[in-house]
Design a protein around this nucleic acid. Structure first.
Lengths: 345, 345
DNA sequence: CTGTTAGCGCCTTCAA
DNA sequence: TTGAAGGCGCTAACAG
């Protein structure tokens, strides 16, 4: 059960441990080809793998970045974790992911764990509510906030990677206006975060510029079960909000949801109320999670370029000197079948 | 930027490093309360966190388990990762998750990385195609296969955690028979794995026992895009298979899919062909991923008790002496709205 | 009850 | 081109 060590390899290859070390670290210049061959063979024969803990203890750096998400059971964050892993792999770096379930105590604990592992940096898609503790973390390693932004002074020291949120809703409005809509609702949970505020701002500006009616529907109560684990709150919120869209005095012919999870909930709610999509009402989401394509009808959405954003987040940590990819990423309109011309009155 | 060390804490608290170590490892029996208080205060003042690498190097064990999944972008495996994390947390253990994308080379590399971290064990939801290498791994740490089973001799040494797959399809058949169906199709990709074979066996036995018609539809070609990253192949496969269900000479009035991802694909395909669910045809999935509830209509499915299974998998590794939770987990029928009495001919 | 000490496996000078 | 030696931060005997 015990692993072979560098000494064992050295003995088998008939060389010294330092030669093995040189070999492992690609310092081939200082040894003969036949030595290399012997070492290579000994390593394979023993199935030797250098011990990460020892290496890290010696060099002082781990090849690990930390990732915090509200929950991996949430489709969007699963996709994010995947993208971050892909990006980090290019730097020979591993990712340790934690679900915080939006629990401040757990956020704190998990940050501390990550620090104890000596991670090179932390990417967070979770809100990090404990400002004081966050400050302690930023002084120890770089922190990158993914699609999370606030006005806290603590956030001064962290890099934010996000989509151009105002542009996303603005593009959604433009798409709908082109189709002929003159009254549009934006459905959102209470806008605690800056990026939600940005989406609202983009919506309101675009609506004003187009000279049409824009209504804000704040969904903050749900009668469905709360599901902290699966992180499906936004789905339930969307479902509950459907009736408010339908009964609104502004008579919107289209709804934009703050994200796809909520849009799918709205879709279910609207259908329960007997509304057809898009014949009676058009629906647009934001994110482009996988199930947009499986929704009935397939959901028009603004795609968040997750892989590019993950690449940039990882680069902030592992190669901060490279030129940045730009702080704000452009959303991409994906037109499917949930949007159409408004019904004739 | 440099972390405080145990020596610094000892100096500040006016005690020796070993007392700090005792404190950190909860060996309080051997020190006075005032010493504890001083240590506690020194730790907080310095923001001290023990270095995991050093601790691991010394003790020889990491508090980490490894998790291999095909892709975290796949809803099912995101949920699994979440469940495993929750289970491991109860043992103060962390989880390092890797996506393999079903690439044997990557599976191999990732196993090796995990071993280098000194993980206490590996849970895999990915197939581990390289039998030879798998043997090398099982000799170094326990390996638990999650819902993956094969007949390889290499699998003798690994523990398998899985649902009672035959029972799942059998329950699905019974549910449909009770509703009055007399001809049912089971849609599956080629049954390479034992658990798929089990589902087929359960289906065929149940169908025979009920004295009704059961047809096997093997879906193995898709005209849609292959999406290794998002792992949506089964969705596309299901969509393509819809036409084969509709044109089958057995005229099935219900379809059971090998899992929900495929069921949702079938649902989309059937609707594209103008079939109503469940009025024209009933549909049953397996797994109970989140989007079953958001599907139109909400999908009847056999729930896989993921959390219980994850608990058992983690326990196999971290507390192998506890009584096992049982190797086979019972599926739970979740009746939603995709199943109904068959149409009157 | 507390301090001293000797490594854990590896990397990195430095000398040979 | 290779070998020897010291130490990264921590734990666990064993002394005191």
């Amino acid at each position: 059960m015990s692993e072979p060590k560098i000494q064992d390899v050295a003995r088998l290859a008939g060389v010294s441990p330092s030669s093995i070390s040189n070999f492992l670290n690609n310092r081939m210049g200082q040894m003969r080809p036949d030595t290399q061959a012997k070492i290579q063979q000994a390593i394979e024969q023993l199935g030797y793998r250098p011990n990460n803990a020892a290496r890290q203890l010696k060099t002082g750096v781990a090849s690990m970045v930390g990732l915090l998400v509200p929950s991996l059971a949430n489709q969007f964050f699963g996709a994010l974790a995947c993208a971050v892993e892909a990006a980090a792999t290019r730097y020979q770096c591993h990712v340790m992911t934690f679900s915080t379930f939006r629990d401040p105590d757990r956020e704190r604990a998990v940050m501390a764990d990550l620090l104890a592992y000596g991670v090179k940096g932390i990417i967070t898609g979770s809100a990090l509510s404990d400002t004081e503790h966050l400050a302690a973390v930023t002084s120890r390693c770089p922190v990158v906030a993914f699609d999370i932004k606030r006005n806290d002074e603590a956030h001064d020291r962290i890099t934010t990677i996000s989509m151009d949120n105002a542009a996303a809703t603005a593009q959604a409005v433009q798409h709908l206006v082109t189709l002929g809509h003159r009254s549009i609702a934006l459905v959102t949970p209470p806008p605690y975060t800056l990026n939600r505020q940005e989406r609202i701002r983009g919506f309101q500006q675009a609506v004003a510029a187009a000279g049409i009616t824009g209504e804000l529907v704040i969904a903050d109560a749900t009668d469905g079960p709360s599901d902290p684990h699966g992180d499906t709150r936004l789905f339930e919120l969307g479902r509950s909000a459907a009736s408010r869209i339908v009964t609104s005095s502004a008579r919107p012919t289209a709804a934009i949801a703050i994200n796809d999870m909520m849009a799918i909930g709205i879709g279910v709610g609207l259908k329960q109320l007997g509304r057809r999509i898009p014949a009676d009402i058009s629906l647009v989401g934001i994110d482009d999670i996988f199930f947009c394509a499986a929704h009935d009808p397939p959901l028009t959405t603004l795609r968040q370029p997750i892989q590019a954003m993950a690449d940039a987040a990882v680069k902030c940590i592992l190669a901060p000197d490279d030129k940045p990819d730009g702080a704000l990423f452009a959303p991409e309109l994906i037109v499917r079948s949930s949007t159409a011309t408004p019904p004739q009155p």
